[in-house]
Amino acid sequence: MAYAIGLCVDEGYLVPALTTITSLADTLPPRERKDVAIRVLTLDMTRSHAETMADFVRQVGFGSFDLRWCTPSQAALMVDDSYISVTTYLRFHFTPHFVGREYLIYVDADTQALGDIAAPLDDLEPGRLGVVQDEFIPTVGVSEALPGLVEARPEFRGRTYYNAGMLWAPTRMLAEVRKGIEQAMKWGSSHIFHNDQDALNLWLLTTSAAQQVNGAFNQFELSRFLEFGDWVSRVVHRPASTTASAKLVHFVGPHKPWQASCPATEDVIRYRAHLTRTMRQVHRLGDLSIEVPEGRR
């Protein structure tokens, strides 16, 4: 099954994106890795860093790489911007021609792959977008997500709310996704708080395009949050340490594993091992201008 892995990367997330690519490479045997394409959309990456990224992707064994500079839609609305940039909206700008494969798997750059993230493609129905239910906001109307929506549209209360950090899509439906989200951002702009994720959910609530994927393919790393309080135990109904069965761990929230201030949980330690290998490879390529970020995106 021909697929590409897509990432949206700005200068602040270059090293995390490369680390995610390292982890993705580790999940695939070399022969399979050569058949997988990496596709990157960026708003501000320098050309020298883009060249380094291309070299890096080839070095770790992926068979195809392409990068494109683009800008988000003018309708893109940033409300929750404490550690997120408008680059996050680029996930809706992949095109079939650019992807060049039958399927696109979109991956957030603050993730670590632990298993085969392409497995959900085996069950993906035509015209459906694979998405995972959000662990912090499982349903519409229970948090600050989509403010005011259930008051205006009570029929949406209790519907599934999805995380935008992993998406599985047939490339032939990418134009439909982009158009639908453009329309959702126009009629539902007053209900957006979590930026592109709320925009995605606005669209999915009005279509039958969502196909739920097992949570193991986008599982939140929770132990970091417990270092600052126990609220996560009241929200997520699974033990915080249970990422052993995860196919992909997602480091949501402001405490990122590449930051020295992030609590050194088991998953963070494992991530930092990938980070060390990644930086070693970057330096072998001769680009000493790339550094591990510490501040906000």
Score class of each variant (00 low, 15 high):
residue 247 K to A: 05
residue 288 L to R: 13
residue 132 V to K: 12
residue 258 W to Q: 11
residue 132 V to I: 10
residue 93 H to E: 11
residue 84 I to D: 09
residue 118 A to W: 15
residue 127 G to E: 08
residue 248 L to D: 06
residue 80 D to Q: 10
residue 33 R to Q: 15
residue 288 L to Q: 12
residue 296 R to W: 00
residue 42 T to F: 12
residue 212 Q to N: 14
residue 241 S to P: 05
residue 43 L to F: 13
residue 247 K to R: 01
residue 196 D to T: 08
residue 293 P to N: 02
residue 237 H to Y: 11
residue 285 L to G: 07
residue 120 P to W: 12
residue 6 G to L: 12
residue 44 D to M: 06
residue 112 Q to H: 09
residue 62 F to G: 04
residue 210 A to D: 05
residue 39 R to I: 02
residue 140 V to P: 09
residue 184 A to T: 11
residue 187 W to Y: 12
residue 168 W to V: 00
residue 237 H to M: 01
residue 38 I to S: 00
residue 124 L to H: 11
residue 289 S to P: 15
residue 271 Y to D: 10
residue 92 F to G: 11
residue 41 L to K: 08
residue 218 N to H: 01
residue 6 G to F: 07
residue 78 M to P: 08
residue 51 E to N: 03
residue 26 D to Q: 01
residue 15 V to W: 09
residue 46 T to F: 10
residue 192 I to Y: 07
residue 150 V to C: 10
residue 66 D to P: 15
residue 153 R to A: 13
residue 140 V to L: 10
residue 198 D to T: 00
residue 56 F to T: 00
residue 15 V to H: 09
residue 126 P to R: 03
residue 256 K to H: 10
residue 186 K to R: 14
residue 169 A to L: 07
residue 250 H to E: 08
residue 91 R to N: 13
residue 228 F to H: 06
residue 212 Q to L: 14
residue 168 W to Y: 06
residue 101 R to Y: 09
residue 170 P to A: 04
residue 240 A to S: 10
residue 15 V to T: 13
residue 75 A to C: 01
residue 182 E to L: 15
residue 57 V to P: 10
residue 19 T to F: 09
residue 86 V to T: 09
residue 15 V to Q: 06
residue 74 Q to P: 12
residue 232 V to W: 10
residue 219 Q to L: 13
residue 137 I to F: 12
residue 238 R to T: 08
residue 192 I to M: 07
residue 148 G to F: 07
residue 123 D to I: 02
residue 288 L to C: 03
residue 7 L to D: 03
residue 43 L to Q: 14
residue 267 D to I: 02
residue 207 T to P: 06
residue 32 E to N: 04
residue 134 D to A: 07
residue 73 S to E: 14
residue 140 V to F: 09
residue 197 Q to M: 10
residue 243 T to N: 01
residue 204 L to V: 01
residue 216 A to D: 06
residue 190 S to N: 06
residue 244 A to Y: 14
residue 282 V to D: 01
residue 103 Y to W: 08
residue 238 R to C: 06
residue 89 Y to D: 03
residue 46 T to E: 12
residue 293 P to I: 04
residue 34 K to C: 08
residue 203 W to D: 03
residue 193 F to R: 13
residue 262 C to G: 03
residue 60 V to C: 02
residue 111 T to N: 04
residue 122 D to N: 14
residue 237 H to V: 00
residue 176 E to D: 14
residue 65 F to L: 04
residue 121 L to H: 08
residue 157 R to T: 11
residue 13 Y to C: 07
residue 110 D to T: 08
residue 134 D to V: 03
residue 229 G to Q: 15
residue 239 P to R: 00
residue 253 G to P: 01
residue 36 V to P: 01
residue 94 F to Q: 00
residue 81 D to L: 02
residue 259 Q to N: 04
residue 146 L to D: 08
residue 7 L to T: 02
residue 81 D to M: 11
residue 88 T to R: 12
residue 245 S to P: 04
residue 107 V to N: 11
residue 80 D to H: 03
residue 196 D to V: 03
residue 246 A to N: 00
residue 86 V to M: 13
residue 139 T to M: 04
residue 47 R to W: 13
residue 61 G to S: 06
residue 22 T to L: 02
residue 100 G to V: 10
residue 218 N to P: 02
residue 162 Y to E: 03
residue 292 V to K: 05
residue 42 T to K: 13
residue 81 D to C: 09
residue 296 R to E: 07
residue 170 P to M: 01
residue 84 I to V: 13
residue 33 R to W: 10
residue 106 Y to P: 14
residue 135 E to P: 06
residue 20 T to I: 04
residue 157 R to N: 13
residue 183 Q to S: 13
residue 266 E to P: 11
residue 295 G to S: 10
residue 296 R to V: 05
residue 118 A to K: 11
residue 120 P to H: 07
